[in-house]
Design a protein around this nucleic acid. Sequence first.
DNA 1: GATTGTGAAGAGCTTCACAGCT
DNA 2: AGCTGTGAAGCTCTTCACAATC
Lengths: 217, 217
Amino acid sequence: MPNTDRISKPTSRRMSLYLRVLQSQLDMQTNSISSKQLGAQTGVKDAQVRKDLACFGSLGRPGVGYRTHDLHQALLCLLGMDQTWKTVLVGAGNIGRALLAYPRFRNEGFDFVAAFDQEKKTVGKRIAGLVIQPMSELKKSVKQNKVQLGLIAVPPDAAVQVAQCLVDAGIRGILNFAPKRLDLPSGIAVVNVDFTDALEQLAFEIRLSNNDIKVMK
Amino acid sequence: MPNTDRISKPTSRRMSLYLRVLQSQLDMQTNSISSKQLGAQTGVKDAQVRKDLACFGSLGRPGVGYRTHDLHQALLCLLGMDQTWKTVLVGAGNIGRALLAYPRFRNEGFDFVAAFDQEKKTVGKRIAGLVIQPMSELKKSVKQNKVQLGLIAVPPDAAVQVAQCLVDAGIRGILNFAPKRLDLPSGIAVVNVDFTDALEQLAFEIRLSNNDIKVMK
DNA sequence: GATTGTGAAGAGCTTCACAGCT
DNA sequence: AGCTGTGAAGCTCTTCACAATC
């Protein structure tokens, strides 16, 4: 039983990285993995890896490392990948449709039970096995199916309203692809994925390495 | 002329948030904005906003705030949005096609000059005004067009190879949508966008707020 | 009166280094 | 010998608080 109080955000992000390494290692029949190896494959220092994994108690064995199977199980459980998460998609535009079809989501326990869109043209179409429903059905569907997660892939102006609707319907967490800040009650988890943000970071970093930021009027 | 030495990663991320607020404010003819207002709309404390903006020198006026126009210009410039970035897409699957069609990219100065895919079925198709080319053309095209940015949206196993190819062709930065760590020479900027990561963070946060992490064998 | 810019304090994260275990 | 777990040191980021400015 991990001491979750001490798991910081940076740590939980790295946990995802460790999990990914473990998943590729499991196929290869490796019995153990050391903090050094894990670190090398994730770009993290070995001491940091050990600190991160300390929340699992004494999982590693000195002189050997961590049993891959046990560590994999522990990470799956910690990151909530040992259960199925009922999920809905709101917004079936280009991005939304790509997300619906993203095979990795289904493989990792995210079960899309419904998808919604405002456009009459889109409603009724079948994508990745789901028929797109009108927004008017959203609240009812989330409640009835006890959906826990919502993916928001609508234009920024609609995002706040959609989020509120999901929260009213009893959702627990939102993955937000709209470039818009969602100010939701505590108790509702929000993770933002913002493509423009990411590209701006990239442009900024390139300029930094160029020593190129001079023009500032 | 900002002192870029002191701009930390957390700060540059928030700069993107400030820029977004400014862009919506500009339309509304507001002359000035205070650190308090900026903070309220981004979820950042006012003192933090002022510290972040300190790299621009004395841009703000005590008692008044920051002139929206000047701040907007400064942020555009800092984040590299005052120029056009020649960009290629590698991988024209569901995600790749959605990215090509994402209108925000074009609006913010990212100019897609070419797109590539391995699948013969996909090559030759026209998406968002671009004809998908075979991978064999990638290196030549990047060199000839002096492309600076690459978007990688290929399966994880192919990502490393594609990245190497882009680097060899002289690219400056990579936005990586493949769930795979890219270990590239310093001087090449990499920003990762990992959907599975994001969903794992969400699942983890929900469990945290549930106080639900008990089972750990 | 309102707001900036910033030194100093506070909080948090990472790295070091080593005792202790296998 | 090799590796973990961890206290302590070092570093970075955030928040506070207030003099200076408009």
